[in-house]
Design a protein around this nucleic acid. Structure first.
Lengths: 133, 133
DNA sequence: CCTTGTTCCTGTAGTGGCTACAGGTTGCAG
DNA sequence: CTGCAACCTGTAGCCACTACAGGAACAAGG
């Protein structure tokens, strides 16, 4: 009955899990599509574009709240850059902080694991780092 | 009535949220302590040591499942290193993978934000990266 | 037209690792 | 003995999904 895309097709096309589509609709990230006479969702190409947008933004680590804002700002007729930049810059900042955190923790782990590899010591360097015994 | 530590005291000493202590007990990471006559938890120093262990392991990014294993392996009388090393090494591997992911994404973001800063362009590089318009 | 099998529908519950709240009891200091 | 802080329990919420159960609709083959 529908002449557009089914939910399964849309999800596959955009590279997103089937259930995730319904979730995005529920939280207001995806607009409610038309329905077939039988009640099945009937998507159009703009839905696919929107879903790909969301997927890419998620891959870049933006939160769903950020993505809501980015979607609003990507509507035609907006002078976007000035409004988009702070969101992206804040996220970039957070990403860099996360990298720093992980690097510090990589060093501690690497050191402990390196000393661990030695052999059958009576106490383990990894456990020691954690304050055990 | 209790001559040990209260939950609040334990949590503060170990640098952990009050409610988190109860949560760790619920999921079997912290042993159930004795109770006062009135039903309040009454912790002893070994509880604090355990909680600090958990907190440090969390800071290093270990999952609660990993931590359960590490705790078991940190019991006295275990020849730990050979058994601890694979857990820590696997985690180190995951941390490095995460750093790689974040670095890739940092580059994409940095590039887009850099081009964004330019000014009042008609279309925004960040939005373009995401496939919008 | 009818059957078959896949996809879809809805609502709900679970994941990890907490955190927060409500409504009530206990502990302790003044 | 009063007052209030800290505790008690159970439960719900957070994020971003993912999975399931029980049933209806759709597309293709006979």
């Amino acid at each position: 009955m529908g002449h557009g895309l089914t939910r399964g097709r849309l999800a596959a096309d955009a590279g997103v899990n089937l259930e995730t589509v319904r979730y995005y609709e529920r939280v207001g990230l995806m607009p409610e599509p038309d329905r077939t006479s039988g009640g099945h969702r009937d998507y159009r190409p703009e839905h696919r574009q929107r879903l790909v947008f969301i997927r890419r933004a998620r891959e870049l680590g933006f939160s769903l709240d950020d993505i809501r804002a980015l979607i609003a700002l990507s509507e035609p007729g907006r002078r976007t850059c000035a409004e988009v930049e702070p969101i992206a810059a804040a996220h970039l900042f957070a990403v860099r902080a996360k990298i720093e955190d992980l690097r510090r923790l990589e060093m501690v782990l690497d050191d402990a694991v390196g000393r661990c590899a030695g052999g059958t010591a009576p106490s383990c360097p990894v456990i020691e780092v954690l304050g055990g015994r």
